[in-house]
Design a protein around this nucleic acid. Structure first.
Length: 298
DNA sequence: TTTCAGGTGATTG
DNA sequence: CAATCACCTGAA
């Protein structure tokens, strides 16, 4: 199984799209929907356990995405983007199950990655189904709990998973999805703007989370989630020395400048920034054109 | 002990 | 519209 385009399994799984995979035996153990799987990247391609998961792995990791075509579609003179892309061309935008992605990002607000991961794993363990073992001695895996399971569990039980005020958001969303107010088929028939509006009808889902879901679960590759990090990156790289832009201005800039694969551009920029400029002790080579280290606002 | 973190919704000018 | 604020929790 050999992708014909650049692919970096580890980087993709650590790029803030999904939070439930375990590093295990030189590869990654996790689940695609309710199918447990272990994947290791080697020089020759991907090693997958168990057999029979090849197509699901291809779909989940979007190995059919044409990264080369995306590169060509990006603005030719955009040096920061070209730099970020060259830093890790193997990043992929995953095709995640809708509810799993939606629910996970609802629990992500004002949380750091380890917290999001912890909450996600706790919810799985308490309310999800245990999945079959694919590797001896490995951590137990659980599917993401269904909307019905979380709706029935009740807000109080969710609160006890350390969600805080997010428990109410997640519970209401679970109830709404269990009632069929939003589903993948409905979103599939809608334009990006319509689908975004549909998602934002859910309590606790604002523009940022809606865009994450569109991008990471609905294959809307033009969706451009703007969180505090990407906002800083854009300011540093594209709006240097200019006054602060509104979210609306940033959104319009991203759509116009990056085009139909804006979501991928966002992912490349985000990943590059997190692993270089935003880290303490980052080298000069990783600094932006302005020559300043990017830091969180004081 | 205080601050802050991968947002959202409600409330003000 | 845009700015401001509260909000659970956990880690630095």
């Amino acid at each position: 199984m050999l992708p014909d385009q650049p692919f970096d399994l580890s980087a993709t799984l650590q790029s803030g799209q999904t939070f439930h995979w375990h590093a295990w035996e030189g590869g990654w153990l996790g689940s695609i929907g309710d199918d447990p799987v272990w994947v290791r990247q080697t020089a020759g391609g991907l090693e997958i356990i168990p057999q029979g998961m090849e197509e699901k792995v291809r779909g989940y990791f979007a190995l059919d995405h044409d990264v080369v075509a995306m590169m060509r579609s990006f603005p030719a003179g955009d040096v920061p983007l070209a730099t970020a892309l060259a830093f890790c061309p193997g990043l992929r935008i995953l095709r995640q199950p809708l509810w799993e992605c939606l629910a996970t990002f609802i629990t992500s607000s004002l949380k750091q990655v380890p917290h999001i991961r912890k909450i996600s794993l706790t919810l799985r363990e308490r309310f999800g189904v245990e999945l079959p073992t694919v590797m001896e001695g490995a951590p137990k895996l659980y599917g993401y709990p269904t909307p019905q399971a979380l709706a029935e569990a009740g807000e109080g039980a969710l609160w006890e998973c350390g969600l805080g005020y997010r428990a109410a958001f997640l519970h209401r969303a679970a109830v709404d999805l269990a009632a069929g107010r939003v589903d993948a088929a409905m979103l599939a028939g809608q334009s990006d703007d319509e689908a975004r509006a549909t998602l934002m009808q859910l309590h606790g889902v604002g523009e940022k989370i809606a865009n994450c879901v569109l991008l990471f679960a609905c294959e809307r590759l033009a969706a451009f989630p703007i969180d505090v990090w990407i906002e800083r990156v854009l300011h540093q790289l594209y709006f240097a020395r200019k006054r602060r832009r509104t979210a609306e201005q940033i959104r319009k800039f991203a759509a116009r400048h990056f085009g139909p694969y804006a979501g991928y551009a966002q992912q490349f920029l985000f990943h590059h920034a997190r692993l270089t400029k935003l880290r303490p002790g980052a080298s000069d080579a990783s600094r932006g054109p302005a020559g300043q280290l990017l830091r969180p606002a004081p």
